[in-house]
Amino acid sequence: MPKKDYYSSRAHDLLGSIFGVFALSMLITSPWQVDTSGPDPFYKGPLIFPLIVFCLMLAGSLPSLWRLFRPSEKSSWYLDGQGKPFKTMVILGLLIIYLAGIIFIGLEVSTWLFLLIALKLVNQDSILKLTLIPVLVTLILFVIFKYFLDIWFPEPLIMEIFLE
């Protein structure tokens, strides 16, 4: 797809409009979200810069808002032909579960599980890769972070349940 067409997709206008609506809502609500009870005059206070910033964002989003509600005849929602990001969303979901997993089953098990499932999902099917890489990476991370850097990781909740 030519560069000009790529950038004229309505998906860009939608994203720009989302930013615009966000900026407008923040602009309206910011006096309540910023503590302005201090003695400083407005120009020295904590609210002036955020207000300028939201006005800037809103101004930048106006062309997108205009195009979203008044689309030209040639405009379409076609973006890049790369399809819907299902696999990416699944990996992203796994990443969130992985974070929760660190709390529930600990760093080592959750890292090993995440790598195993994610590698399988991205078609790294060879048995060698699926067995070696998760174990190796988990081991390296354990050695670097727990052994050398002495970083504290949450005690796995599952262990507490078993110990009780």
Partner: peptide, 10 residues
């Protein structure tokens, strides 16, 4: 330009 301004603001 407009997208750059929005992201800068963000």
């Amino acid at each position: 330009f407009a997208r750059g301004i929005m992201l800068l603001g963000l």
